[in-house]
Simulated scan of single mutants.
Amino acid sequence: MDEALLLNGILIVGLVLKIGGFLVRDELLLRLLVAGGIACDAAFYGFRPEPILQSVLANLGLVSINLALIALILSERTTWRMGPDDRALFAHFPTLSPGQFRRLRPLMTRRTEEAGVQLAWEGRPVEHLMLVFSDRIEIRKGGAGFPIAGPAFVGEIAFLTGHPSSADVTLPEGGTVLRIDTAALQARMRRAPALHNAIVALFGRELARKVADSVPMDRAARARPVAPAAGARPAQPKG
């Protein structure tokens, strides 16, 4: 094959890879394509009849930077650096990326609580966001109480609103409680908008699950009759 044709082919392939990288939205794919394009540039300058060493080294340096960033992206997206316990715990934070979870992990403390312990008091500030591992969690508000099944978060409403706890929360059978300091978590969320959005989405899902578990749909339907559509004629009694 003609040497000039080979070099031109390498240069064109590199250009296509870099253009493709700048057209995609996924950061990992962008880095892979751009790194491949720059590697082609390094090959172009290295395979010339008179290699240009400075250009080869400069492009290899850029390839190395992109490879380092690719490694960081993979670390952010994968759980390969987590142990079995952390992987099991990560399953309870489905809206967070593995990297976000790893950065929050140092804020978490775990403790086994005895039966009957109270975790939150209605009207009092909540200092810790809690993930409770227990078969039964008792919630009491305004004299009325109902149970929810664990694992479940406790204190997320107070955390999101900044208000005191809206209910008393106890563990009739005890359990394991994972606590996260609310002030430290809020500080992390202020510095990282993506983490803020992930936490808000997580607690939105948690609240929806609690509502669905605590108010059966058939009972809710009986408690609130459906209004007739505009212009519809009410049903006439038979007889």
Rank of each mutant, 00 (worst) to 15 (best):
A35H: 10
C40G: 13
A229G: 15
A221V: 15
P216N: 10
G123M: 03
P228H: 12
G150E: 09
G116C: 06
M108T: 04
G46P: 07
G37H: 11
L74A: 08
A68V: 09
G123I: 01
N59E: 08
A115M: 04
I180P: 00
P125F: 05
I73Y: 04
A232S: 15
F47Y: 13
M108Y: 02
M108C: 06
G142Y: 03
G9M: 05
L53E: 13
E113D: 04
G99D: 02
M130G: 04
I65V: 13
L29A: 13
I19L: 14
G143T: 08
R103W: 05
W80Y: 13
M82Y: 05
A88E: 10
P51M: 05
M108N: 02
S97W: 04
G20D: 02
A194C: 00
S166I: 06
R105S: 06
P151M: 10
D168Q: 12
F22I: 00
L74G: 05
R81I: 04
G116Q: 06
E50T: 13
D168R: 10
A115F: 08
L28S: 08
I73M: 08
L160G: 06
D135C: 06
A192P: 00
G150D: 05
T112C: 03
R25T: 12
R233P: 00
R111K: 14
P125C: 03
A167P: 04
I199G: 04
P49H: 04
L33H: 07
T95H: 11
A42D: 07
P216H: 09
F93N: 02
D213G: 15
M217R: 15
R111L: 02
L33V: 05
V16E: 10
I70D: 05
R191P: 00
R233G: 00
Q186I: 00
F203P: 03
I180T: 04
G20W: 08
G143P: 07
A149T: 15
R222T: 06
Y45L: 02
G99E: 05
L96I: 03
A115T: 02
R87C: 07
